[in-house]
């Protein structure tokens, strides 16, 4: 069988070593289904390090801090590289920030942020395991409750 060759990026972002099950969640968060850039999504790829992994390459897109923070929430294990001139220009370490603003929805339906125009805010009480407290309704949530905007 002929192996699929993935073109090397000239300019753009590579997200590598995503846990396989998180691959499409990352793609969704970045809104890649509506992207006009050249996008490569690889799922269940062989990896000596992880067994199976996901990989996403996006041409001519450089993730901003907000997008990197979103990925940190759902796939903190991933490696993020910015490519310029076919070279790795920067490796970004994914880290959950101390506070999330406008990144996720509060799952408490009776929370004011679901009824008024207000940017959501969560205080990160613990990073491992992920525990967030809504700045408004003060409820505590885990990773499974996260609804990324």
């Amino acid at each position: 069988m002929k192996e699929l060759k993935i073109a090397r990026l000239k300019e753009g972002t590579v997200i590598d070593h995503i846990k396989s099950e998180n691959t499409f969640r990352v793609a969704r968060i970045l809104g890649l289904e509506n992207s006009s850039s050249m996008v490569t999504i690889g799922a269940n790829l062989d990896s000596t390090k992880m067994g199976r992994k996901g990989l996403i390459k996006i041409e001519n897109k450089f993730l901003n801090e907000k997008e990197a923070n979103k990925i940190a929430l759902v796939a903190p294990e991933a490696n993020l590289c910015i490519i310029r001139n076919s070279q790795v220009e920067k490796k970004i370490r994914l880290e959950v920030p101390d506070e999330l603003r406008g990144l996720a929805r509060c799952i408490n339906t009776n929370c004011v942020t679901n009824h008024e125009k207000a940017e959501t805010r969560f205080i990160v009480e613990s990073k491992e395991p992920l525990k967030l407290r809504c700045h408004y309704c003060e409820r505590i949530f885990g990773k499974g409750d996260l609804e990324i905007l």
Binding site: N110, V112, E116, H135, Y136, E138
Partner: peptide, 10 residues
């Protein structure tokens, strides 16, 4: 006094 949680903080 408001029925929604977080309203006072907002």
């Amino acid at each position: 006094r408001h029925p929604l949680e977080g309203s006072a903080r907002l």
